[in-house]
Amino acid sequence: MSKKCQITNKKANNACAISHSHIRTKKLQNINLQNKRIWSKKKLRWIKLRISTKAIKNMSKIKI
């Protein structure tokens, strides 16, 4: 399974790790993915999703 949010389609960010001597090396900043069961009102059953914590936070705000 890919490291991608199934709702927001967020994925890893390319960044640089900078050492004390200021040497830059490439690194990935992965998103915080969680496995979550969410109740679907349309299908009337539980759905397993792999979503980011940002998406979980927004879902609890709008009460889905």
Results as ranks from 00 to 15, higher is better:
residue 28 L to R: 12
residue 60 S to L: 15
residue 21 S to N: 15
residue 35 N to M: 02
residue 38 I to V: 05
residue 21 S to W: 04
residue 53 T to F: 02
residue 12 A to I: 01
residue 6 Q to E: 15
residue 10 K to A: 02
residue 50 R to I: 11
residue 12 A to G: 12
residue 58 N to K: 11
residue 29 Q to P: 00
residue 5 C to I: 03
residue 59 M to L: 15
residue 50 R to A: 04
residue 45 R to C: 12
residue 42 K to F: 08
residue 59 M to I: 13
residue 25 T to Y: 04
residue 30 N to M: 05
residue 35 N to V: 03
residue 22 H to P: 00
residue 16 C to I: 09
residue 50 R to T: 14
residue 11 K to W: 02
residue 22 H to I: 06
residue 62 I to E: 10
residue 22 H to L: 15
residue 23 I to P: 00
residue 20 H to K: 10
residue 17 A to V: 07
residue 40 S to R: 01
residue 8 T to G: 04
residue 42 K to E: 14
residue 61 K to E: 11
residue 19 S to M: 00
residue 1 M to R: 10
residue 2 S to D: 15
residue 7 I to W: 00
residue 38 I to K: 01
residue 12 A to M: 06
residue 22 H to F: 13
residue 17 A to M: 09
residue 38 I to P: 01
residue 45 R to A: 07
residue 36 K to W: 10
residue 29 Q to S: 06
residue 7 I to Y: 01
residue 59 M to Q: 02
residue 3 K to D: 11
residue 11 K to C: 03
residue 23 I to D: 11
residue 5 C to E: 01
residue 4 K to P: 00
residue 44 L to D: 12
residue 31 I to A: 00
residue 43 K to D: 14
residue 21 S to K: 15
residue 49 L to K: 05
residue 42 K to V: 07
residue 27 K to Y: 10
residue 7 I to E: 00
residue 63 K to R: 15
residue 22 H to E: 11
residue 50 R to M: 06
residue 14 N to A: 07
residue 29 Q to F: 04
residue 8 T to L: 10
residue 52 S to K: 03
residue 58 N to P: 00
residue 24 R to F: 06
residue 57 K to I: 07
residue 9 N to W: 05
residue 29 Q to A: 02
residue 31 I to N: 00
residue 47 I to M: 01
residue 55 A to V: 05
residue 64 I to W: 14
residue 7 I to H: 01
residue 54 K to W: 03
residue 13 N to R: 05
residue 10 K to N: 02
residue 21 S to H: 12
residue 8 T to I: 08
residue 14 N to T: 04
residue 64 I to D: 12
residue 25 T to V: 13
residue 58 N to D: 11
residue 56 I to W: 05
residue 9 N to C: 10
residue 27 K to S: 10
